[in-house]
């Protein structure tokens, strides 16, 4: 049952996941944290941190981890959980892969389709809201524990937007700060 559910949920996320990895995070969070409680909010935040520090697209990383931990929580053994993680990861890629097979067949005709391109114009502003939603719903007591948290939060944004510091460097810096202040 949980296998079926994981497969279906991640296929759905793969189908509706427009606007890149960060926009997809709010979809993943809604399903994985809010609806199915496969992970807590804090675990999800930690997972995003880990995904940023490890290679690989964030969507793949979260799908793999979510599949794995959902099955471990449900009482399955490690090898079964690994298989489940492989399944969720493939489920996430399945919809766009199917679309790519069709697109490659008709190739560029598709891109210049008027309906399709105007639908995409409508989705673009939405993806900003999706990114903001992911950030906003993680702004809670679990992640912001004291007066230092907002300072770290703002510093991260400034470093990233204003000074274009690489996310990995920002996270490594934050890890060092954590060791010193906590």
């Amino acid at each position: 049952m949980i296998f079926y559910k994981l497969f279906w949920v991640f296929t759905k996320i793969g189908f509706f996941g427009f606007g890149g990895g960060y926009a997809m995070l709010s979809l993943i969070q809604e399903e994985v944290v809010d609806r199915n409680s496969w992970m807590t909010k804090q675990e999800f935040t930690d997972l995003v941190a880990v995904s940023q520090l490890t290679p690989g697209p964030i969507g793949i990383n979260t799908a793999t981890y979510a599949g794995y931990s959902a099955l471990i929580h449900a009482g399955y053994t490690h090898p079964i959980a690994m298989l489940g993680a492989a399944m969720t990861t493939i489920a996430l890629c399945l919809p766009s892969f199917a679309m790519i097979s069709v697109i490659s067949y008709f190739f560029l005709k598709f891109r210049s389709n008027r309906y399709f391109s105007s639908a995409m114009d409508g989705v673009r502003p939405i993806s900003i809201a999706l990114i903001a939603l992911a950030a906003l719903s993680l702004t809670n007591r679990d992640n912001f524990i004291d007066y230092m948290s907002p300072i770290l939060f703002i510093t991260a944004i400034v470093c990233s937007v204003r000074f274009k510091v690489h996310p990995i460097l920002i996270l490594l810096g934050a890890a060092l700060v954590g060791l010193v202040i906590y």
């Binding site: 890149g20 960060y22 995070l25 804090q42 935040t45 930690d46 995003v48 941190a49 940023q52 900003i128 990114i131 903001a132 992911a134 950030a135 993680l138 702004t139 679990d142 992640n143 912001f144 524990i145 230092m148 948290s149 907002p150 770290l152 939060f153 703002i154 510093t155 991260a156 944004i157 990233s160 937007v161 996310p167 920002i170 996270l171 934050a174 890890a175 700060v177 954590g178 060791l179 202040i181 906590y182």
Partner: peptide, 18 residues
């Protein structure tokens, strides 16, 4: 300790692409 500092920073990194 590390994750206490990482968490708000991750939220910041998610917000930045907005």
């Amino acid at each position: 300790k590390i994750f206490k500092a990482l968490r708000p920073v991750v939220v910041g990194l998610i917000a930045a692409p907005c």
